[in-house]
């Protein structure tokens, strides 16, 4: 399971940071084409370059950056955009809460730096790797993700051409493949299998059963499915050491 009982050799910060960078390579592969697409989209709407680049630099949240551009072009009010982003990204609250129990680092500065880089993708890797008890590892992981996201944005803005259409469309699978690659090996234990299955069933109900009648944002669906499935796990599996 995720946290094994191996004793941690007290590694010096340097190799752990590098291990984090290496662990983040699959994220970088997935982020660059999406960030290029983001830069191109912003360009096509004539958003000032400085604004596009500072979005990736200061916000660093893929889905909400795309939605922000969409909403800006629809002429939405700023407070609507801010509220939408807050709702969409509040799922990271759950992820940071989960990480807070795993990371043993106590330096407030390092924790504050790590917090900035919590995304669906960095969290998914950090939560599966045992090195995550070291905050420096997570910082390395977040750093490569952040660099890839920003380099991709610059490429989209300044090179102003993307990958060939067919390849761009195929790259859309990259981050989902990463999620699958992280989840599948953990499914061998019964509690994890049941929690993951519950989340998928709840998502299906929300997506096909509820959304058509009562629109729910993706962010809210993910939060509801996550809380319910993890809650089911916490109630069903009292005795087992789960993670």
């Amino acid at each position: 399971m995720a946290t094994s009982v191996q004793p941690t050799p007290s590694a010096s910060p340097q190799p752990t940071f590098r291990a984090g960078l290496r662990a983040g390579v699959p994220i970088a592969i997935g982020y660059i084409p999406i960030a290029i697409a983001f830069g191109l989209l912003a360009q096509s709407f004539n958003l000032p370059n400085a604004i596009t680049l500072s979005m990736s630099f200061f916000i660093f949240a893929g889905a909400s950056q795309f939605i922000t551009i969409q909403l800006l072009m629809n002429g939405s009010m700023y407070w609507e955009i801010i509220l939408t982003t807050f709702i969409l990204n509040s799922r990271h609250f759950l992820m940071s809460a989960s990480l807070s129990q795993r990371i043993e680092t106590t330096s407030q500065k390092l924790l504050a730096a790590i917090a900035f880089g919590v995304t669906d993708e960095t969290f998914s890797i950090a939560s599966i790797r045992k090195e995550t008890r070291s905050g420096v590892f997570v910082f390395g992981l977040n750093t490569i993700a952040f660099l890839a996201w920003n380099v991709g944005t610059w490429m989209g803005v300044f090179l102003a051409f993307g990958l060939p259409d067919a390849l761009q469309a195929s790259m859309g699978i990259a981050l989902y493949a990463m999620f699958i690659g992280l989840l599948v090996p953990s499914l061998t234990t019964r509690p994890v299998f049941i929690v993951a299955s519950a989340a998928i069933v709840i998502q299906a109900i929300l997506h096909w059963g509820v959304s058509p009648f009562f629109p729910i944002s993706d962010g809210i669906r993910i939060i509801v499915a996550t809380i319910t499935a993890a809650g089911i796990g916490a109630i069903l599996f009292k005795e087992e050491e789960v993670a």
Binding site: S124, Q203, D218, T226, G231, G233, A234, V242
Partner: peptide, 22 residues
């Protein structure tokens, strides 16, 4: 129970992200 809940979050999040988004 809160610790158990948080320890299940990674798997619940992964599954919710994969489906139906994929």
């Amino acid at each position: 129970y809160m610790k158990r809940f948080l320890s299940f979050i990674p798997y619940a999040v992964l599954a919710s992200l994969i489906f139906p988004g994929i």
